[in-house]
Design a protein around this nucleic acid. Structure first.
Lengths: 132, 132
DNA sequence: CAGCATCCACGTTGATACTG
DNA sequence: CAGTATCAACGTGGATGCTG
């Protein structure tokens, strides 16, 4: 795990190169992951799939505001990153089941840490914004 | 802390309402936080400020690719959320120092968890993408 | 030094209609 | 059922020039 990559922002315990090079975002897996889970629907889908596998329209019904298009795109993105498994059952009509891969399940834990932080500091942030 | 808000996606240990209501994104602090730290520069700025306070142009030099505009916007966003403190010293020319607030510092830990996950699964994701 | 104002390119999201 | 295709709206980010 070590020796092959350049300095990585582990945030706690590891210094950043200074200055941070211009191609940081092409190199940095942290930003990469954050931009994925920072989109509008990914986390919600991951959480639902973390409870149990879901079929496509089951997810669609489960998230009232998501469009068919965005659900497809979100699932494709997660599938391309190896976080979600897509299994097609050749029934009539066809059914497709989505589930978290083992790697996808490991994401639930750090995500929970951030979620817990968000809930814990919800009031503090709202107070700072003056929107409460 | 409990009793005043509706069900929140704690991801591990807490079920989501089903179906997830259409206004989830207006209610959910988790998505809110993720969309903030999921933008292009916020995490990098937080990490740098996590090491020590920085002046504006010091940050600008520290992150080669960021524009003045985006650095300003990123700092204002963090300041509005109460995560960053901005202190102006009335010198000539003026100097402004940015630092993490106590609440901002607490963000470093869950961020580290996600960062560690990203680094750990960097190869797995790259392999799934076929981009390595 | 530490910004703000303006304009513009691009990516993301959404609405709608159609299909194997 | 599980999508794809197309078009439109919006937000994010960047380039440039100016200022207290």
């Amino acid at each position: 795990m070590s020796g092959t990559h350049t300095d990585v922002p582990l945030i706690v315990g590891t210094p950043l190169p200074s200055p941070v090079p211009a191609d940081e975002h092409e190199q940095c897996p942290v930003t990469d992951v954050l931009r994925r889970v920072g989109d509008k629907w990914t986390v919600l889908v991951v959480v639902l799939l973390g409870q149990r596998p879901h079929r496509f329209n089951e997810l669609h019904r489960g998230i009232e505001a998501i469009s068919q298009r965005m659900l497809t795109r979100t699932l494709r993105g997660l599938e391309n990153d190896g976080l979600v498994h897509r299994e097609v059952f050749p029934t009539v009509p066809p059914s497709v089941e989505y589930s978290l891969t083992p790697m996808g399940r490991t994401l639930l834990e750090p995500l929970s840490a951030l979620a817990a932080w968000a809930v814990e500091h919800r009031a503090g942030i709202a107070a700072a914004r003056g929107t409460d």
